[in-house]
Amino acid sequence: MKIDRGQLTNQVSRLKAAGFDYLVKITAVDYVDHLEVLYFVRDIAASKDEILEVTVAPSDAWVPTIMDFHLSADWYERELAEMFGITVKGRATARLFLEKWDGADPPLRKSFVWDAQYRTRDVKK
């Protein structure tokens, strides 16, 4: 289900009330001209999944937090911030999740080129 980021918290809250109370994961995909943030929620009793897709512009990459509804969003949101450079608004600034990246682009953005980055680093050493 494609939704606007302004509707995200409302939709998550509505789905949770409808039984989708288990967050499977949050992830994102960088399509270069836009970023897609995906929320997988599940109704365990009915064995049904729902996917919420939020599109954000790379220059204005932020989404609201959903930690008020799903505690398990914590680590995923930290991952979004660190790996995709997507700011998660409405929550405390999280400490570093996995890795420090020397001020380069967020690693899972397409602008972060794996080989070139490594070569540059080796040369600098």
Binding site: L98, E99, P107, L108, W114
Partner: peptide
């Protein structure tokens, strides 16, 4: 604190 074994498999 995680991250000590991060190998970037998703990027790789």
């Amino acid at each position: 604190h995680a991250g000590f074994l991060h190998r970037g498999v998703e990027k790789l």
